[in-house]
Amino acid sequence: MTNIQRDKIDIPVTSFEEVILARQLVRELMERLGFSLLAQTRIVTAVSELARNMVVHAKDGRLTATKVTQGARVGVNCIFQDSGPGIEDIDQAMREGYSTTKSLGLGLGGAKKLCGEFNITSSMGKGTKIDITEWVK
């Protein structure tokens, strides 16, 4: 099910086309929330990496992106949840250059560097959940 509202996006990410859609929708949301162009570029790049990882390495991926507030602060939170194989050794997967698909292995570690807050939990055979938050400066 696809659900796109003003301050909340909830979409499946199972194809490269949906990776592009995820990027566009997060950018629009961040624009509305008043993020700088640089912040939009950084977070949308991270979204692209994490969304692609769900397509390449997992299945049944979903992205939920929402407006969050904390006192006067406004931010965006994105949750990438899949039912893929999970990641056995998260530290290893996060390391630059580690890839099980002979790719660059930049995606996961790179995405973390691009986001203010980054949380990853994974369980073998069940799936992976990555939760990122960025606040408007």
């Binding site: 570029t41 950084r42 790049t45 630059e96 570690g109 790179g110 560097k113």
Partner: peptide, 14 residues
Amino acid sequence: MRKEVVLTLVQLGL
């Protein structure tokens, strides 16, 4: 290449 894109690529490690 936009300057935001360049900055992001550097931060990404590419």
